[in-house]
């Protein structure tokens, strides 16, 4: 591991003041420390923000405010989250292991990097790690990579479960940085790779996530479902966060669908949502909605399985949510 400086920030303003080019913020370290050991991340300095007083979960208006340094396990087991945002608790519990969830923070979860095998292997080219060096995944091992929204430069997926639920819940990410504070909506924090795959998010250098706020839970029933290669401690092949509100007459009054494991971002399925609104809740409409969303899919030879998998997952989850 390359040598680096270390400082513990006293408060968010102190953290931002300590930021220099080459500095990285350290949360739980479950991804960053590993990337440093792999040589993928080579910060000149770490500013430790894991103990900042940003670990509260409080009601705010009709919603909830979650501090950026809240541990994943504390988020998943908080009574208000379990009662009012069960899909969020389910998404967090579906990720990683008990030990990792105890260490990992909310902000770190959102800002974790892709697990694309080429990104994590410094002996290989990778446009995300070394812009312009190429993407061997397109002709190589892309079995778990993107089918939606990818570019000739990068076919990586975002690995977070939490982020998928937050997109469906339309969370807002509160940020402070050298230019002041701002609020970034979800979806909108993560960006598609385009020709700048080195940028996972819209955050600017030095910006620090301080909190995530959730609006009131959307009406309807919700579910988080995750398909993976083993029953626990594995990243999603495809996952879904879905909210479905069916009117008394049987038509869809409202819905939110977000997909994980299929794109460089937690993917909001807006096309599917448009098909569903006002349609009669049932298998026929659910299938039409899923197919409308996946019309835009451009699978690679070894990940084409994700398209029918996503389609079936959307249909099955919506059927489960139908009263």
């Amino acid at each position: 591991m390359k040598a680096f400086g270390y400082a513990r920030a006293a408060d968010p303003a102190d953290a931002v003041a300590r930021f220099r080019p080459g500095t990285m913020y350290l949360g739980g370290g479950t991804n960053l420390v590993d990337l440093m050991r792999l040589g993928v991340a080579e910060p000149e300095a770490l500013v430790d923000v894991s103990r900042l007083p940003l670990s509260g979960i409080e009601p705010e208006g009709d919603g909830l405010r979650v501090g950026a340094a809240v541990r994943n396990s504390d988020l998943a087991t908080h009574p208000l989250v379990r009662e009012r945002y069960p899909m969020l608790a389910r998404a967090v519990l579906a990720g990683a292991s008990g030990q990792v969830r105890n260490m990992a923070t909310v902000a770190g979860n959102l800002l974790q990097r892709t697990r694309c095998p080429y990104f994590q292997d410094v002996s290989k080219p990778c446009n995300k790690r070394r812009p312009g060096s190429g993407c061997p995944a397109i002709a190589g091992d892309h079995a778990n990579l993107a089918v939606l929204g990818h570019s000739p430069a990068c076919v990586a997926t975002h690995p977070s479960d939490l982020a998928v639920a937050l997109v469906a819940l339309e969370a807002r990410v509160h940020v402070t940085g050298p230019g002041g504070t701002r609020v970034v909506p979800m979806p909108g924090l993560h960006r598609l790779p385009g020709d700048e795959p080195q940028r996972d998010t819209v955050l600017e250098p030095g910006e620090l996530v301080t909190a995530v706020t959730l609006p009131a839970p959307p009406p309807g029933a919700s579910l988080y479902r995750k398909v993976r290669e083993r029953a626990s401690f594995a990243f999603a092949l495809v996952s879904i966060a879905a909210v479905l509100d069916v009117a008394p007459g049987g038509t869809v009054a409202g819905c939110r669908i977000a997909l994980g494991g299929v794109a460089h971002v937690p993917w909001r399925a807006e096309r599917a949502e448009r098909v569903l609104r006002g349609a009669p809740a049932g298998e026929e409409a659910f299938l039409r909605a899923a197919e409308a969303e996946l019309e835009g899919a451009e699978p690679l030879p070894r990940n084409a399985y994700k398209v029918p998998l996503a389609r079936n997952l959307i249909v099955r989850t919506l059927l489960e949510l139908t009263p």
Binding site: Y6, G29, R37, D48, N102
Partner: peptide
């Protein structure tokens, strides 16, 4: 040494954690 096997699990302030992914310098 990558947080995937759990052999390094210890309790930090009573909570189980992976000591391979915890920097010693952050344990003040």
């Amino acid at each position: 040494d990558h947080g995937q096997c759990g052999a390094c699990t210890v309790l930090i302030d009573g909570r189980r954690a992976l000591s391979c992914l915890a920097l010693a310098v952050a344990q003040e």
